[in-house]
Design a protein around this nucleic acid. Sequence first.
DNA 1: TAAAACCTTGGAGTGCACTCCAAGCAAGCG
DNA 2: CGCTTGCTTGGAGTGCACTCCAAGGTTTTA
Lengths: 154, 154
Amino acid sequence: MTVMETTEPGTDTCADPPRATRRPDGRDQYTISEVVAFTGLTAHTLRWYERIGLMPHIDRSHTGQRRYRNRDLDWLDLVGKLRLTGMPVADMVRYAEMVREGDDTYAERFELLEATRRDVRARIAELQDTLAVLDRKISFYADAGRALASEGSR
Amino acid sequence: MTVMETTEPGTDTCADPPRATRRPDGRDQYTISEVVAFTGLTAHTLRWYERIGLMPHIDRSHTGQRRYRNRDLDWLDLVGKLRLTGMPVADMVRYAEMVREGDDTYAERFELLEATRRDVRARIAELQDTLAVLDRKISFYADAGRALASEGSR
DNA sequence: TAAAACCTTGGAGTGCACTCCAAGCAAGCG
DNA sequence: CGCTTGCTTGGAGTGCACTCCAAGGTTTTA
């Protein structure tokens, strides 16, 4: 039989979110499936990140299997945050390249982070604007619902 | 010659964002290109929204050209907000269908809006978390930059 | 009235971020 | 030792949200 390697093979009705298992400390070596559990990413995605240059070099066991280390998980945490900002993967790859290139790229990395911070602030503002619209619409619906209800009870 | 109908055909270096022209009041009829100017969407996208059922029926001139009205622009404003929340287009189509179906769907629409509001609140929280990470990283880079600078001046 | 700019359609194409596949090697357990 | 479960690869496939095309009709400007 072939191995499935899907996410959440169990109940498919409202599968619980990929709650990230907390990373134990005192260890510095993890298999890909452990990293899947920590990050909520799929193994496919982890390997894909590596192929496109988004990951630093990942250690391998003597037989070629990936052995992630704590610094790799820290990097994945950062990537996860940047992903939440909507930053394109290509930009994250660029950032990863700059990290590999070393100290010469400090200024450039600094600028990228500051630009990202500006974007995040702007998006938060947009979302708060949207929230205001939703609040207005929701109270409109609540009022309309009450009106319909009282109509129904008349 | 063929018509281009692209966005921003001018300078392609850092083209200014599609700043939405303000909608004039006292009018209730607009061509598609005016709506493009108001919303920042492309004409392609506006027609596509219509095809997939995301728009209400749009009036036509006697020769079949679209004539948008203020209520259509109001709807597009809402769609724009919902889009910012990351709501899938399919969900917005569902909402549009419910609006067309009429009063029977009030409760359902109400729930959808409330769920969206929850999502938006959650996303704002995530982004604020990310902002904290960025702030920490940026001040780290600022310190490192200062260290490098003073090293350079030594 | 002629040229330029704008609008119409269905269907095909694009870019992104995954997502999956097949075939085979590796690891842990009774 | 055999069984099950897990990990490996390159390349192909998927889903979403647009984005564009060709060929032609319409409206506006000079």
